[in-house]
């Protein structure tokens, strides 16, 4: 101990003791964990806010605190806004996937008779609900957040509250009910379009007879059930997540833009997370071997 000290003092000017940390470096080191912590806290707060908005919306739905006219108007809005968009997207995805699958299969086995069978099964329990919901998350989610967000920043929401109007009943609930009802409808429509374009591609490019391609025999009741449950869950999540982003808007038009972006990202993430969760749950409830 004492020797070390001696050497130091003799050799060179006293170096700063190794144990005294440089505050700037410590701050730099602490930054990433602090940022992660803040992000996690923020995420937890948002999740709690969304959960409580969801519970509030459900409660109001049960108490029937919504006007039929408002729901019908929103159904028209959501359906109308998304019909073309969903049709084009799902139609093209089916075209491309049938083309790719047939091309690969042609090289491996040359037997294209099962392509339609598998594609239809996959579409029923997975692609039609989730791809439709992803499209709705962008199209409808952005619309809901922008509409409600601009009402928040122009104090129209406060003006509603001055007239004894509950913003959740008036703004969120009709959109929630409309989206809940329209998502399955749009998914069925999307399924129809995708089936049509897939069948056409298989026939035109690979000569697969439509009577062979269109084969529902692999679709089980479980597939249909999972598909329907997914539609309802996505349809419930999108308006609540994007409505939350709208209601928590602050600042001017910049705030509305930020809320819209947040709504699209969060609603899409919610759809993906729910999709994974429901797929796993469906797999555990209805193991494929038993089917």
């Amino acid at each position: 101990m004492s020797r070390t000290r001696d050497i130091r003092s003799a050799d060179s000017p006293p170096a700063p003791p190794a144990s005294a940390p440089d505050p700037q470096r410590v701050a730099l080191l602490l930054r990433p964990p602090l940022l992660v912590g803040a992000a996690a806290l923020g995420g937890a707060r948002v999740a709690r806010g969304i959960a409580s908005l969801f519970a509030g919306t459900l409660l109001r739905a049960i108490n029937r605190q919504s006007e039929r006219g408002a729901v019908a108007e929103q159904m028209f809005n959501i359906g109308n806004r998304s019909l073309f968009f969903v049709a084009v997207t799902l139609g093209f995805i089916a075209l491309v996937s049938v083309f790719q699958v047939c091309l690969q299969l042609n090289r491996v086995t040359g037997d294209l008779s099962k392509v339609g069978l598998e594609l239809i099964k996959l579409m029923v329990h997975e692609s039609a609900p989730s791809l439709t919901a992803m499209m709705l998350a962008t199209r409808v989610g952005a619309g809901i957040a922008a509409e409600i967000g601009s009402m928040v920043v122009t104090e129209q929401v406060d003006a509603l509250r001055m007239s004894g109007v509950d913003p959740v009943s008036y703004l969120i609930l009709p959109r929630f009910l409309a989206c809940l009802l329209m998502t399955p409808v749009l998914a069925v429509f999307a399924f129809g379009v995708a089936l049509g374009s897939g069948t056409a591609m298989a026939y035109v490019a690979f000569g697969v007879n439509p009577s062979i391609f269109v084969d529902f025999s692999a679709v089980t009741a479980a597939d249909v059930g999972i598909g329907v449950v997914k539609c309802f869950c996505f349809g419930a999540a999108i308006p609540v997540v994007s409505g939350y982003c709208g209601l928590t808007t602050f600042g001017g038009s910049e705030g509305v833009g930020a809320a819209t972006t947040r709504a699209v990202i969060n609603a899409s993430l919610a759809v993906l997370a729910l999709d994974l969760l429901l797929t796993v749950a469906g797999f555990m409830l209805f193991p494929p071997s038993a089917a």
């Binding site: 122009t154 104090e155 129209q156 406060d158 003006a159 509250r161 001055m162 007239s163 004894g164 509950d166």
Partner: peptide
């Protein structure tokens, strides 16, 4: 709570600085 507040607000009228008309 919000319900009781809403009842109180029904007895109040307010003009907002930026009007806040329903567009």
């Amino acid at each position: 709570d919000e319900t009781a507040l809403a009842q109180t607000r029904e007895r109040i009228g307010m003009l907002f600085q930026n009007n806040a008309l329903f567009d």
